[in-house]
Design a protein around this nucleic acid. Structure first.
Length: 264
DNA sequence: ATGCCTGCGGTTCGCAGA
């Protein structure tokens, strides 16, 4: 069961990259962010042709999230419950995993989340970032009571630790690396979530985003801000993780690359 | 010190991103 998160930075601009990657990686479940289009403009047919069910929560110009699944998925929320928001940043569903040769059928809950950037600081955008994270944490606390495999995946717009940036000092004044942002992320994790990538590697240099500007990719000036948080029952099944950084070297890439985990 | 780049809307520049 391969589960990935990928901020595409416009699904229409990135459709060919996405289709190529889906064929290569063959993920079971993909969380997309920054669709930058309405639901009716989403390139649904091309993805369905590869055998995926497509569920979107789009918005004109900005934001937008989607879940695409090889297995039947039922959407439970479009928009973060308990958080009035005009911006499309949250979609949650339950995936039915068919019975395998040596295990029974099961269910997995998944959310694709695009957290606010929060710059500049201080200001209303940073307040909004923190309010979103607080509401997400409240919702996650409720979800954990269901005691089911749960994956909260997406672009968190948080650099958890200095080792998650090539040049952490460059981010000292940025909303992505503020003590409050990092503390909010730790509090979410402390509910009982496992950061899948960090559960499988202590390596520095694990990045998921490189800015388009100033040759950030060429200089490996990256940060790790796309995360897969696993509930205890999901973490119990964690086998391996990966970051498909080769996608950043393609022509006209997203500034993010896919991050994935494999659950047994 | 600032902008560098990219996408979008809607016109050729402003906003947002991170």
């Amino acid at each position: 069961m391969l589960i990935a998160t990928f901020n595409v930075n416009s699904v229409r601009q990135r459709l060919e990259h996405l289709l190529r990657w889906l064929k290569l990686r063959e993920p079971d479940l993909v969380c997309l962010q920054e669709l930058k289009c309405l639901d009716e403009a989403f390139p649904r047919a091309e993805i369905e042709e590869l055998g995926y069910q497509v569920e979107t929560h789009g918005q004109k110009t900005f934001n937008g999230v989607a879940l695409i699944s090889k297995h039947p998925i039922e959407i439970e929320h479009r928009g973060l419950p308990g958080f009035e928001d005009e911006q499309a940043r949250y979609i949650e569903g339950v995936v039915s995993i068919p019975a395998g040769s040596n295990q029974p059928g099961s269910a997995l809950r998944i959310a694709s989340i695009y957290f606010p950037n929060g710059n500049p600081i201080p200001g209303p955008k940073f307040d909004y970032k923190r309010a979103f994270m607080a509401a997400l944490t409240d919702h996650a606390r409720r979800l954990l009571t269901f005691e089911e495999p749960l994956v909260l995946a997406g672009d968190y717009n948080v650099i958890p630790e200095p080792r998650d940036a090539r040049y952490p000092e460059n981010w000292s004044g940025d909303a992505l690396f503020q003590p409050e942002s990092r503390s909010d992320f730790r509090k979410l994790c402390a509910l009982g979530f496992t950061d899948a990538v960090r559960a499988t590697s202590d390596d520095p240099g694990l990045y998921s985003f490189w800015d388009y500007q100033a040759g950030a990719w060429q200089r490996n000036n990256g940060i790790r801000i796309d995360h897969l948080l696993l509930s205890p029952l999901a973490a119990d099944r964690l086998m391996e993780t990966g970051i498909d950084k080769a996608m950043r070297a393609e022509d006209k890439p997203s500034d993010h690359v896919p991050v994935w985990c494999r659950l047994r």
